[in-house]
């Protein structure tokens, strides 16, 4: 198939950026979306132009590197997948595809479709852990976690830190991402000791990074490649309120 791409090109953080149109010829439905961009990039390099820059690595939906707005949707059409898992059979011959980076003040564009998500790491560093020292730990079975609790903690822990929730949110809120970690550790006995400090510090860091506030639109859950549920946001809110007393 033949497709028209409108791709956001931006030289660096300070550049204004603009859309540039490219034609992708001979696209096979078995290609992944990123492989389609690889082909476009090969042509660009051969013509002496700079290729479209985007983050990616595992190309199987687990590392959280990839992420772009495709026709206005975070990670494009399809439910429960990251951009790298999108295949061209989701498009038809002659389609126009608009490709943009995540848009959020907390995720400044570095170049083209690549953004700076280190704000997520800084939130995690503000207590998104248990203070377990290396060594001297009792047997794993000395802490019992019944399957339903372990499963729910796992559902939260599945977050890949891609930032689609922020990109999809009209307020650029990071609540789904933050709630996934808070909720995982609040559910598990191992996380209980530090829950007050954890939720307080992580929320403070989130605010400092200039993420917006949550107005319950649930756009995040709809676009999250790991289908992290907004019930974790509810748990985060409870944790936060409890921490105030």
């Amino acid at each position: 198939m033949k497709l028209t791409l409108k791709v956001w090109r931006q030289k660096d953080r300070n550049d204004e950026g603009r859309f540039v149109e490219y034609i992708a010829n001979e696209v096979s439905p078995d290609m992944s979306f990123l492989e389609m961009l690889d082909v476009v990039n090969t042509d660009l390099v051969k013509k002496g132009e700079t290729p479209i820059v985007f983050d990616h690595d595992c190309r199987e939906g687990i590392c959280g590197s990839c992420g772009m707005m495709i026709n206005g949707r975070a990670h494009g059409p399809g439910k429960g997948i990251a951009t790298c898992q999108l295949h061209m059979r989701s498009f038809s011959d002659g389609d126009q595809i608009v490709i943009e980076p995540w848009r959020s003040t907390a995720f400044p564009v570095l170049k083209d479709l690549m953004v700076d998500r280190t704000s997520f790491d800084r939130i995690m560093r503000a207590g998104g852990y248990t203070s377990a020292k290396t060594g001297g730990i009792p047997d794993g079975n000395s802490i019992l976690v019944p399957k339903p609790v372990a499963d729910e903690a796992f559902d939260a822990a599945a977050c890949i830190g891609c930032g689609a929730c922020v990109a999809a949110c009209p307020n650029s809120s990071a609540m789904l991402f933050v709630s996934a970690k808070v909720s995982q550790l609040a559910l598990l006995p191992q996380g209980k000791a530090e829950r007050v400090e954890r939720v307080t510090r992580m929320i403070a860091q989130m605010d400092e990074e200039k993420f917006g506030s949550c107005s319950n639109t649930y756009a995040c859950e709809a676009e999250c490649p790991k289908q992290i549920s907004v019930t974790h946001i509810a748990r985060l809110n409870r944790e936060f309120v409890a921490a105030q007393f």
Partner: peptide
């Protein structure tokens, strides 16, 4: 395994809570 459990790694468990 013990180290990872302490960090909050959600390993598969059975209904009684054992790994």
């Amino acid at each position: 395994i013990d180290q990872c459990v302490a960090q909050g790694v959600p390993f598969a468990r059975d209904y009684a809570g054992y790994l």
